[in-house]
Design a protein around this nucleic acid. Structure first.
Length: 899
RNA sequence: GGGCACUUAGCUCAGCGGUAGAGCGCCUCGUUUACACCGAGGAUGCCGGCGGUUCGAAUCCGUCAGUGCCCA
């Protein structure tokens, strides 16, 4: 016997372990079944499960479970990425708390600590995913630093290098001065900051007393200025182009150049050019061939080595001693000192308040410093081409489609991808340097030495590049590296390309773009056919969840409180493609009742001896009720399947919800009660047969989104062996004889009962009062139906009998309502207020009249009749006729009580 | 500054050319033996504004306004 209340905690863990132990999550490369593959976008190994994960993995698990039930050989590839910066940061902090600095213990020792950390606390997310019910193929779990995946990384690096698609270059990078490494554009977030615009006076050479005023948000960088740019059309500065100004403090003589980058509307109209510390200035500097000295070191402190030689004393303008005093000062301290010095020299024209977007490292939180360094780059533009083409030709499709624009705009303007990172944790770059600076890129050190000896002779000593690769470099290979590439494996053969990548729109550039670039280049095909983009989870007010705001909700806590199924069903119901999901505890609490409803319906079935019956044949059913519910189940199956095919989790959940609650519980079980309470016989047997069949269908239909509850009921009822629902067949519509007539009959019955209930409620008839239903103008068919359903009508319509109004019978004080061709009279002389009933009927009439007026207006429009589709015109004619008939019946009803 | 999305019942959102919907909330009623995480009934909308296309527009097109996001 099922418990009176549903308690998910009592079975979730047991079921998960049962599935896992039985191998239900495992793909089988040897099977002949068509594969269905989802590559988990590998979460960060340092991460723990947050609500955004719950969203994305619920969607993925729902798709995987559904396809598995459809008989596909489902592979859902689990694993984590090694998260270079994040992991190194975590371990450094840990060591720091023990007073250990990584530089003191050295690279090797430090990496031992990282692996130790990983073994102990890394990947807790994979354990947490289990409580969500995620049916990942755990024995296949991979980590981007695994040996196999590392081989893939080396292979890709060397190959791309050989092909000229990976190269070293000295360019500006986003430098994170906290972690002292280059980071990607995508790891930079712009923060709107209140700052200032400093207007600085640069003395014009050869014209004492004349200044060119430049406006800057970063006065400290002026030490590295090598030009001033003005707009070529700007009359104010035309005579200065080609001449020079004296850079204050350093005394350097720098040219005034004409460049369209300078915006005459902004600031003073003249802009200082610091090529080594600003991306725009870098471009201007390149155009004009000026020097590019760096003036900050890796920590963001003033560094004079590259400008020392050019320092020159200029009375009242420049003093090398002051500049030297700045050496080693932090960039922000230096700013203060420089501004003060300029002010003292009266070279500071003014300071304006100014808001600007300041780039910050998304992990370090410190302002990013553009820095000119030698790094490894990947020619992303070349790799992007086939990926762009795949989306253009529809070989890879985005759902929803408009996200393709985001993808295109990024991919078509993609910059060289800086792939080296000045970290210890990650894939060390397979490049070795000879003392003469030659670079040898090879799969192994031996190979590198072989190359080096061939070129430089025996006895050469190589040192390996200290840097590691961007974590995304290895994640980009995930769709094939996890399958064994570069080895040719059965898995690679069978599961590449995958079917769908599921991720949020914020990650299009990271996973989607890079996986596509590498997939096309190395596998000759896109890594997935569909990219399903979902939204981000926000709080109930639509705000982004963040620890600092304190508005995060913990999915594991929600699972504890309401069960994994409730959380999953809530997420599915709210997951409209591409739209952000506003989610709070309350929403999950509300949706929990759906699981309870299903549980109780099952419990009712159990109490009535409804049990799995394999010999039940839905094509043989006779009763309208069985036919009707089986037919409705067919519709639900069709709707749910279509919704899943279209990645509409909300529609899928909605279709299940409506069928279970509104069709199965509200009407079917209620209509079944008389038969179930009645004597054994063919009718009862058939109702029970239909009930068990439909309950089984419901469990299978809901399993992808509510795996635990459905499996528990499946097992308890004995629809199959323990833990077998996960592998049960996805329901298919069954042939139901006489479905159309059954639908007509049950629709009529529902309409009759609803109408009677409505009238009673409006007339304030207490439920304890039961009355006869007297039919005026009812057809023989209707009367026969009433006969058949008398028990249900009594029970649900609070009626004593259902019969035709006798000839000459004229009960006083009736409430009336039109149902189909008939009018139902409820004799309520004792309880009814005739005035109220008249008013009610008049309101009904008004409604019908308004409806008629609308339709009449349409039909009397000649253009409508001649131009609209014939079936639309016909439909309106029918509706008008129906309304006219209803109005006539209402008028008759009113007349009946008017005297 | 460029681009994208959104604006429908009190709230959260479906619908995207042919009778305005759901869930939650609200109001009324309810010990009918599955379920109060329930049942029955009810109210609530110039579908952001203005133009246009169309026989017909919440739905298509322009435009304006507001909101959010991405890129610069």
């Amino acid at each position: 016997m099922l418990d009176k209340t549903l308690s998910p905690a009592s079975f979730e863990q047991r079921l998960y372990e049962g599935w896992e132990a039985s191998g239900a999550f495992s793909a089988d490369p040897a099977s002949g079944a068509a594969p269905f593959t989802i590559m988990i976008p590998p979460p960060n190994v340092t991460g723990s499960l947050h609500i955004g994960h719950a969203l994305t993995f619920t969607i993925q698990d729902t798709l995987i479970r559904w396809r598995r039930m459809q008989g596909r050989d489902a592979l859902w590839q689990p694993g984590t990425d090694h998260a270079g910066i994040a992991t190194q940061m975590v371990v450094e902090r840990l060591l720091g708390s023990q007073g250990v600095n990584r530089r003191d213990i050295g690279r090797e020792k430090f990496l031992e600590h990282v692996w130790e950390w990983k073994a102990q606390s890394g990947g807790s997310i994979t354990r947490q995913l289990r409580s969500l019910g995620a049916s990942l193929d755990w024995p296949r779990e991979r980590f981007t630093m695994d040996a196999g995946l590392s081989d893939a990384v080396r292979e890709v690096f060397v190959t791309l290098h050989e092909q000229g698609l990976i190269y070293r270059d000295k360019r500006l990078v986003n430098w994170d001065s906290k972690f002292q490494t280059a980071i990607s554009d995508l790891e930079v977030e712009n923060r709107e900051m209140k700052g200032s615009l400093w207007h600085l006076r640069y003395p014009v050479e050869g014209e004492p007393g004349r200044f060119l005023v430049v406006a800057t948000t970063r006065p400290e960088t002026m030490l590295g200025d090598t030009a001033v740019a003005v707009h070529p059309d700007d009359e104010r500065f035309r005579d200065l182009v080609g001449r020079h100004v004296i850079l204050p403090l350093t005394g350097r003589r720098i040219p005034v150049v004409a460049d369209e980058y300078s915006d005459p509307e902004k600031g003073s109209g003249a802009v200082k050019i610091t090529p080594a510390h600003d991306f725009n200035d870098f471009a201007v500097g390149k155009r004009h061939g000026v020097a590019m000295p760096s003036i900050l070191d890796a920590q963001g402190a003033v560094w004079l080595e590259e400008i020392e030689a050019s320092l020159q004393a200029v009375p009242g303008v420049a003093d090398p001693a002051f500049v030297r005093s700045l050496a080693g000062q932090d960039r922000f301290a230096a700013r203060k000192a420089i501004v003060a010095e300029l002010e003292r020299l009266e070279l500071l024209e003014k300071i304006e308040p100014h808001n600007n977007a300041v780039p910050h490292g998304d992990r370090s939180g410190v302002p990013i410093e553009p820095r000119l360094t030698m790094q490894w780059y990947c020619d992303a533009a070349t790799l992007a081409k086939p990926a762009i083409e795949a989306v253009e030709t529809g070989r890879t499709e985005f759902v929803p489609k408009h996200f393709e624009n985001v993808f295109f705009s990024w991919m078509r303007d993609i910059q060289p991808w800086c792939i080296s990172r000045q970290l210890w944790w990650g894939h060390q770059i397979p490049a070795w340097y000879a003392p003469d600076g030659s670079v040898f890129v090879a799969r192994t050190e031996e190979e590198a030495y072989a190359q080096a000896r061939a070129k430089l002779g025996d006895g050469v000593t190589l040192t390996r590049d200290e840097d590691v690769l961007d974590t995304w470099f290895s994640s980009a290979l995930w769709p094939f590296s996890t399958l064994g590439w570069p080895r040719k494996t059965p898995e690679l053969e069978k599961y590449y390309p995958g079917d769908v990548l599921v991720t949020g729109w914020d990650i299009i550039f990271f996973w989607v773009a890079r996986m596509m670039m590498m997939g096309h280049h190395f596998m000759g095909d896109a890594p997935f056919k569909t990219v399903y983009i979902h939204g981000l989870v926000r709080d109930e007010k639509g705000q982004k969840m963040s620890k600092s705001k304190g508005n995060v909700i913990d999915p594991l806590e929600l699972v504890d409180s309401f069960g994994a199924d409730a959380l999953r069903f809530t997420i599915a119901s709210l997951a409209t493609p591409g739209r952000d999901v506003k989610l709070g505890r309350k929403r999950v609490e509300d949706f929990r009742s759906f699981g309870t409803k299903l549980w109780n319906a099952a419990r009712f079935c159990e109490m009535n001896g409804i049990a799995p019956n394999a010999s039940f044949d839905p094509s043989k059913v006779q009763t309208p009720l069985a036919r009707w519910i089986l037919d409705a189940a067919n519709s639900a199956i069709a709707e749910a399947t279509a919704a899943l095919e279209a990645y509409r989790m909300d529609d899928y959940a909605g279709a299940c919800y409506r069928f279970v609650w509104n069709s199965f519980c509200d009407w079917f079980l209620e209509f079944a009660k008389p038969a179930l309470n009645g004597p054994d016989g063919a009718e009862k047997a058939e109702v029970k047969g239909a009930a068990q069949h439909v309950l089984g269908t419901i469990l299978r239909l809901l399993h992808p989104v509510m795996p635990y509850l459905t499996e528990e009921l499946w097992d308890r009822f004995g629809y199959g062996a323990e833990f077998s629902l996960i592998r049960a067949a996805w329901p298919e519509p069954v042939a139901v004889p006489g479905a159309e007539e059954a639908r007509a009959e049950l629709d009529w019955l529902v309409s009759l009962i609803s109408t009677v209930r409505g009238v009673r409620s409006e007339m304030n008839v207490p439920p304890s009062v039961t009355v006869p239903l007297l039919l005026q103008g009812a057809s023989a068919g209707t009367l026969a139906r009433g006969e058949r359903w008398i028990e249900a009508i009594r029970r649900l319509g609070r009626a004593t009998e259902f019969r035709a109004l006798a000839e000459g019978e004229a009960p006083k004080g009736v409430a009336q309502a039109v149902v189909g061709e008939a009018t139902v009279l409820l004799p309520l002389a004792e309880v009814i207020d005739l005035g109220a009933e008249r008013a009610r009927l008049a309101r009904e009439q008004d409604k019908v009249k308004a409806e008629m007026a609308k339709i009449t207006a349409k039909l009397s429009n000649a253009d409508f009749v001649s131009r609209a589709k014939p079936e639309v015109v016909e439909e309106n004619r029918e509706r008008l006729a129906a309304s006219e008939a209803e109005l006539a019946r209402l008028q008759a009803a009113l007349a009946r009580i008017s005297d």
